Simulated assay, not measured.
Amino acid sequence: MKQIQWFPGHMFKSLRQIRERMTLMDIVLVLLDSRLPSSSMNPEIFKIIKDKPTLILFNKMDLADDSILNQWVEYYEKQGYLTLKIDSQTGKNVNKIHEYAQMVLKEKLERTRQKGLKDRAIRTMILGIPNVGKSTLINQLSKSSATKTGNTPGVTKAQQWIKLSDDFHLLDTPGVLWPKFEDPKVGYHLAITGAIKDKILPEDDVVKYALTFLKKYYP
């Protein structure tokens, strides 16, 4: 099985900018692909987040095997994370994200009020791999075409602030991968779901892997 690496220069730059801006964030929204929660989790992201309050969003929930997805939901909740299954395309559960973010920040918001300080807008950052649905999700949240969307990985190549409401501001970031996939299967999973460019792997190899996977797990 071929070892895959696809880490364009703009992704290296984006990871550096994410590190630099992390201190500005109240909470981080991590967007995973419900069809491949493990392969769509960028290990570099958790290294950067550290102990920052985090809400994990499982996108494209209607395309996933619900029994497998629920196991991953349980896994992350046991790690202490609040999670939410959503579908950015249809808007399913998207309206709950603001509420869930406030739940994650409940103690911090209460401390602010106890000090007599005025509430300010929650600042959040959305992180995920290419083509996981970040731009579509933001358009749902903002009820506009605030960001470009497309089926080609790497559509968003710059960071931009988006005012979702008076009390909820979001920093969109480009989809980022990590320099090396330790498990070659991860690369094939990402290729099948469009997270890496088509030409990175031979199309015949990707199709063969997908058919073998489906025959084994969903005969």
Results as ranks from 00 to 15, higher is better:
Lys215Tyr: 06
Asp198Glu: 11
Val104Trp: 01
Lys85His: 10
Thr136Ser: 13
Gln160Met: 11
Lys163Arg: 09
Ser34Ile: 08
Gln89Ile: 14
Ile45Lys: 12
Gly150Trp: 12
Asn70Trp: 12
Lys85Ala: 06
Asp87Trp: 03
Ile49Pro: 02
Ile49Val: 08
Ile196Pro: 00
Ile48Tyr: 01
Ser144Arg: 06
Phe58His: 00
Ser144Trp: 07
Ile200Gln: 11
Lys180Cys: 08
Ser14Cys: 04
Lys148Gln: 12
Leu214Arg: 09
Met103Asp: 11
Leu211Val: 11
Leu170Ser: 02
Leu15Met: 15
Met22Gln: 07
Met103Ala: 13
Ser14Phe: 01
Arg123Met: 10
Leu201Pro: 05
Thr112Met: 13
Gln89Met: 13
Gln17Gly: 05
Ile27His: 01
Val104Cys: 06
Val206His: 03
Thr149Trp: 15
Lys13Val: 15
Lys115Ala: 15
Lys85Asn: 07
Phe168Tyr: 09
Ser40Leu: 11
Leu32Asp: 01
Leu69Gly: 00
Arg21Gln: 15
Gln159Tyr: 05
Ile162Ser: 02
Glu20Asp: 14
Gln17Ala: 07
Asn70Ser: 08
Lys96Ser: 10
Leu137Gln: 01
Phe213Ala: 05
Thr112Val: 14
Gln89Pro: 07
Phe58Ile: 01
His189Ile: 10
Tyr100Lys: 09
Thr54Ile: 07
Gln140Gly: 08
Thr54Gln: 02
Ile192Asp: 01
Pro53Ser: 05
Ser14Lys: 11
Lys108His: 14
Asp198Arg: 09
Asn151Phe: 14
Lys148Asp: 09
Lys197Gly: 04
Lys2Gln: 15
Val132Pro: 04
Tyr81Ser: 05
Leu109Lys: 14
Ala121Phe: 13
Lys78Ala: 12
Ile129Asp: 02
Val104Leu: 03
Gly116Asp: 04
Lys180Tyr: 04
Ser165Glu: 04
Asn151Ile: 13
Lys148Phe: 05
Ser142Arg: 12
Leu31His: 13
Asn95Asp: 11
Lys13Trp: 12
Asp66Met: 08
Ser145Tyr: 14
Ser88Ala: 14
Gln140Tyr: 12
Gly150Thr: 08
Ile126Glu: 06
Thr83Glu: 09
Ser38Trp: 09
Tyr76Asp: 14
Gly128Gln: 03
Thr23Leu: 13
Lys47Gly: 10
Ser142Val: 12
Val28Phe: 07
Pro179Leu: 10
Thr212Asn: 15
Pro43Lys: 00
Lys216Ile: 05
Lys60Pro: 02
Met125Leu: 08
Leu137Val: 12
Asp166Ser: 07
Glu203Trp: 06
Glu99Leu: 15
Trp72Val: 04
Lys115Trp: 14
